[in-house]
Amino acid sequence: MKFGVIVFPGSNCDHDAYHVISKHVGQPVSFIWHKETDLSGYDAIIIPGGFSYGDYLRAGALARFSPVMSSVREFAARGGFVLGICNGFQILCEAGLLPGALIRNRNLHFVCAHINVLVETTDTPFTNELTRGAVLRLPIAHAEGNYTCDDATLAELQREDRIVFRYCDDAGHITDKANPNGARDSIAGICNRARNVIGLMPHPERACEDLLGSSDGRGIFHSLTATLVHAQER
């Protein structure tokens, strides 16, 4: 199976994602410059964190127009797996591949911290090796991670079991205090209707080694590789 990590001008978590796929997942991985358009041969695409185009206009707004994004759209429509982390989540929302938008944190601060998220569904290719209700300790580092959407979209996300991660406290309780950015319904990550595109604000790729304070991010990558192995066996 082959992973691709898209690199925009201003991406800065691309090497972290590459490192995790090559070292911990143990699969071939390539960087994909944002001007490339050929995604054939890839099984999963990671849109990494960072500040694509300097966050000009709105976070993720300009990256959406990069040539590679048309290919990502087609890749996703064909059922390819797309994981958007932090700025990658913002880009997926701006591109319309995920609903809603990420706005300025309610306290206006850039928040850089380890937080907890609750695994809300295991019915995704990115969480099927996890346990529903499990608490993952993951780092966040963002100023625009405040997820917002209209009432109809929120109801749809809830009804279709598409809220994948929610911010919680150490015990797994969803509280306002445990919500680091004011996200609606404490949403930290969602998936699309076909469940093959996921976006989340926390950084699982920075939480795959105990030395870095947590290895809870590994389960997300293990889920994805397990999904790809099953897909190839079929």
Binding site: I103, R104, N105, R106, N146, T148, G182
Partner: peptide, 10 residues
Amino acid sequence: GVLDPQGKAI
């Protein structure tokens, strides 16, 4: 209805 924390700070 969309929160504007910058507006509030201003």
